[in-house]
Write a protein that binds this DNA or RNA. Structure first.
Lengths: 128, 128, 128, 128
DNA sequence: GTGGTCTAGACCACA
DNA sequence: GTGGTCTAGACCACG
């Protein structure tokens, strides 16, 4: 089944992270986790732009990057489709950088690993 | 003991994170964890700039923000000194945002909390 | 002998070159080199479109251009047939643009002509 | 010595090849051939845009891609500098695709390799 | 209909 | 000063 609703995406206009990058990372994660499957048709640039009240170029930039990464593929004149998903190992790889950053910060704060882990466990539950 | 060596800091010029912000956060963490203690004299803007080959304005900006936050204090003619450290509760607070971000990403990747936790445990050990 | 099999053509959907243009150039070369001879019947638009899973309009566009060029001719009720082939001199002319482009690139790379020539000789052999 | 003149570049507005891509490929070749050396400062986006009467965004797009490729590096607030050049082997690699394309076309034209080679030799001299 | 490209002009963060 | 991002709106090529 294709990915009709442009409301797949939630962008935070206030965030310091550029909009196009928010889009890129969301698609990347949706693809890696299998919520977007190979062959699925992506909403058109115009659809997304209208639904999120963005400039088409902003969306286009995200699509261009995702194509370069191999996450999406262009079908000329027909729109973008989901290409190969990241492999199981890559899913974890997508999370690693953030965890590593957290580990470095914890160390600079001289926090005990067990304290950090139990805090993280709580946060994980809250987020669920 | 004062914190003479500018090599307290490690800045990553390649990172997307602004340099002044890297400095701010490192000082914040060093202060919160007690590695910088109240009264300690900070290296001068010029020293740091020279040691890390940064623009003095960049260092100055970081010092300015840290003063506004109350982490550092300006003593006329003496340079910056470390002010009050964050309290115990704040130390954890400094780590929370990054952990929350990791939790959100893990959920978007549909990863099992236990998997995430054990991965984080490994990374924490590696970082140690 | 007529040119039934639509597998005369190999199109690369991933290429930046438009599909209709790939078709045009392949037919042009096949005609110029005599692999398609005057009077040969071309496969129908529908046949090609089905065989290569292309949009019929794409094939039709290519045929239209080839008709304008005089490479193909439309016979009412009979489909397209091959018209006059390019003359001997034109064969070389069809190759020239690509060679010129290669020459310009070689020069911008400050590569020695002899080096380029021997590399090209190798590639020609591989392609054979 | 830095690369002051924005007239390093020659863009063909009429060409089907996008301007930003023309810029990318020219810089790539200049870097690979050593005409741009590591550490050289590139002209600013605004300089190039003005000199070639282009939109700054067009230049910026080229710079962005070159940074992603590792050809250029950003120095925050200071502009772009040339990063590592392609290695000797890569120089040839930059030329290969065009030569391969020429070889395929020659084969489809059923041209004799020797004929093609001598034609290319002539064109190489003309271009010189 | 699709995405790609470009312009014009604005604002922001960084050094 | 630098590059980065975004909007608004236009035109083009492709299918």
């Amino acid at each position: 089944m294709p990915a009709h609703p442009a409301s797949l995406f939630s962008i935070a206009t206030g965030s310091p992270e550029p909009i196009y990058r928010q889009l890129v990372e969301q698609v990347r994660r949706l693809s890696a986790s299998g919520q977007l499957r190979p062959g699925d048709e992506m909403p058109s640039v115009r659809e997304i732009a209208q639904a999120l009240t963005l400039n088409p170029m902003t969306v286009s930039k995200a699509y261009g990057l995702l194509e370069m990464e191999g996450v999406l593929a262009r079908r000329r004149g027909l729109g973008m489709v989901v290409a190969a998903p990241a492999e199981k190992a890559d899913i974890v790889g997508l999370l690693r950088p953030t965890l590593e950053r957290a580990a470095v910060e914890a160390r600079q704060l001289e926090l005990d690993p067990d304290t950090v882990l139990s805090l993280f466990a709580i946060i994980l539950k809250e987020t669920k």
